[in-house]
Amino acid sequence: MAQQHLDPTDPTAGPSPTGDALAGYLRAQATEFLRALRQHRETGVAASNGREETVDAARALRRSVRRVSGSLHTFRPLLETDWSETLRPELAWLSGTLSMEHAYAARLERLLLALHRLSGATVFPVQSAAVVGGRSAGADPVPLKGAPGPAGPPTATPAADRGNLTVGAAKAGALLERQLTLARTRAHSTALQALGSSRFHAVADKIAVLASEVPLTTTATTTDLRPLATAAEERLKDAVTALPLVTAGSPYNAEALIHGLSPDPAPHPQDAPWHQVRLLLRLHRYARETLYGTDGPIDVRLLTAGQALDRHRDASEASAAAASAARTPRIAPATAYALGVLHADQRHEVEAARFAFQQSWQRQAVSTS
């Protein structure tokens, strides 16, 4: 495969961006964090009346935390080592803690809608209000545009099996709703405890200082940011090169179902490299924002690849939730059958997302070779 250059043109024909650009970007993200935190505190006490505003504030908190954390990782040679290395794991903790509640809500909606689509039964209860601001890019169970959807074995169900699926789908939906709602409730409590903890206040204090003073090294203001940003891009391209894109060239990968409902609850072994590519793609995007500004040119190709990988992540996690529910002791055979079909459906969604990413990435390679 030819090496692709994700930014074939230089949108900044002026002076090289230096540590001053990094400082400006970090100050802007820290300011956004403080603004979102204030909004969250103002609306969080009245969730029934300000639910949408609260979710928006939580999303803004996560967005700014991810960008600060990503910048500390990519441009760490330009930042005071002790300060950045202490703050980075705290930002990772905060981002993960704040994201779980909405992840569980979006996962539940995805699985219930998939059960409805597969069984043709009455619409299951969907907590649409609860997932506003959640993983919107990945919560949509509709197949990727231009890619084969999960129309293989999960939906081509014989009439007799269709009856079993319809019977078990309602109970499967109820089981998933109990399990994921409980998980979401626990995640909500964990997030509330975290936001009131001394650990969070210490992080917030550091970000508040960051809004006015960025601890750069003495040489940062004269150091070109582009080599570090290029290194982030190269790490992404190396990770993509290591992906099994030949397998992903087929919309259905039967090997991906081998580990499906096995007793081993570990994550699917094929998914980890794709999740890593998704994280590296995000770091590359944030590096571009640092160089060119948040109002700089948008690379549509990066957006397309990122959407495919977001859907891959969501389908992967949904399939794991279905497999976990299928291991529940003493469930009815029809319920277990419906959960097995649901798991297979989401694994095919995973393959459809990989196929879409592969198609997009190889088109980039051809266009820039």
Rank of each mutant, 00 (worst) to 15 (best):
S136L: 15
A106G: 14
D140F: 02
A172P: 02
A211L: 07
L195K: 10
G306H: 11
E233Y: 02
S197Q: 08
L192G: 05
T43G: 07
L91M: 15
G152H: 09
V65H: 02
E32H: 09
Q362A: 14
L342H: 01
E213I: 00
E289L: 06
T86I: 04
A129I: 09
G24C: 09
H73L: 14
A172N: 02
E109F: 01
F357L: 07
R327I: 02
L192K: 12
H102E: 06
A103Q: 09
R285C: 04
Q179L: 12
S367C: 11
A208D: 07
A326E: 01
A272S: 13
D295C: 04
T157M: 08
A229Q: 05
H343C: 08
E289D: 10
Q39E: 13
P329W: 01
E85M: 13
F355M: 06
G138E: 02
R38I: 04
E52Y: 12
A156R: 14
W83Q: 03
P153G: 12
T222H: 10
P17H: 05
Y252D: 07
T81A: 11
R66H: 13
V246M: 09
A147T: 10
A130I: 01
H40M: 10
P251Q: 07
E85Q: 14
A92Q: 13
A220Q: 02
R38L: 08
L37D: 08
S99P: 01
